[in-house]
């Protein structure tokens, strides 16, 4: 048993180390977010906030006047935080729901149904992973514009709503791992594929689906350039686009460090909250729930 104990100690040591390396930059972001951007350079070596202020958070929430913002090295843009938060939630939720659902449908067809050309079509779908975004952005933008969807939520979510190669690929791989026996039993009982999918496969894949949903939600939440192009208008502007104002605004300029860090932490909060609320249920359901 001693060997096992030592293994656990070593394991924990590694885990703690990884967590420290993970967390330190977050501490640094926190420390920077409570600092005054203009004083940061002079206090670069300080481990605590430099010239402590809540100004950055006031800027993020759109509470500070132009003069106040400029006085602390921020910019003069205005931020309507709650509106953008709502928009981000709308966009990320629709994207996630659509992508996971349609992805699961397709993945099931690739993993479990038998039809001519299946592997060829699947391969084709996976190759979509390799199409550089630089190619897709421009034609997609033109398409969205011609559909009259600029500055609409639909325009922002559409390219990732119906399919991403990642979602299809991911779920297909997990569906392959599901024990076929249960399905077969259901089929023998006379259940059709549609029914098998909704009643057997989806519940059995709660774990992978939850994982995919979380990852999709985060990816969609962090998406920047596409919503910047398609949804710059106030009523659909998402948080990342709005908070872009804390990035460098001029050639060779510096970002508003404190504002950027505050914005980043603040924008991550809703996801952390979501994770905290849903997390246990979601993660616990990730597991071998198939066959007994």
């Amino acid at each position: 048993m001693a060997r096992v104990r030592w293994g656990r100690v070593a394991g924990w040591a590694v885990l703690v180390l990884v967590m420290l390396v993970t967390l330190f930059p977050f501490y640094w972001m926190l420390r920077t977010s409570f600092s005054n951007t203009r004083a940061l350079a002079a206090g670069a070596a300080d481990l605590l906030p430099v010239d402590f202020t809540l100004g950055a958070y006031r800027r993020v929430l759109g509470l500070s006047s132009t003069a106040e913002a400029v006085a602390e090295g921020g910019s003069s843009g205005t931020v309507n935080f709650w509106l953008y938060l709502r928009n981000s939630i709308v966009v990320a939720t629709i994207t996630t729901a659509g992508q996971v659902f349609f992805g699961a449908l397709a993945a099931y067809a690739f993993a479990r149904l038998r039809w001519p050309g299946r592997n060829a079509v699947f391969t084709l779908f996976v190759t979509a992973l390799m199409v550089p975004p630089i190619f897709t952005t421009l034609p997609n933008f033109v398409l969205i514009k011609e559909l009259g969807l600029l500055n609409t939520f639909l325009g922002i979510v559409l390219p990732h709503l119906l399919m991403t190669p990642f979602a299809v690929f991911f779920l297909r791989q997990f569906f392959l791992g599901i024990n076929a026996g249960v399905e077969e039993a259901a089929r023998i009982d006379g259940a059709g594929h549609v029914r098998t999918f909704f009643r057997i496969v989806l519940p059995m894949s709660r774990g992978p689906i939850a994982t995919l949903a979380i990852l999709t939600y985060i990816t969609s939440w962090n998406d920047y350039f596409w919503p910047l192009l398609v949804g710059k208008a106030e009523n659909v502007r998402v948080l990342t686009v709005a908070l872009g104002i804390f990035r460098s605004q001029t050639p060779q300029g510096s970002p508003d460090w404190a504002g950027l860090m505050a914005a980043t932490l603040f924008a991550a909060l809703p996801i952390m909250a979501l994770f905290a609320v849903l997390g246990r249920r979601v993660i616990d359901s990730i597991g071998y729930t198939g066959v007994k």
Binding site: G103, L105, F125, P159, L162, M163, H193
Partner: peptide, 8 residues
């Protein structure tokens, strides 16, 4: 099953 994804 594949149609929506195929359109996308």
């Amino acid at each position: 099953f594949v149609l929506p994804a195929a359109i996308g």
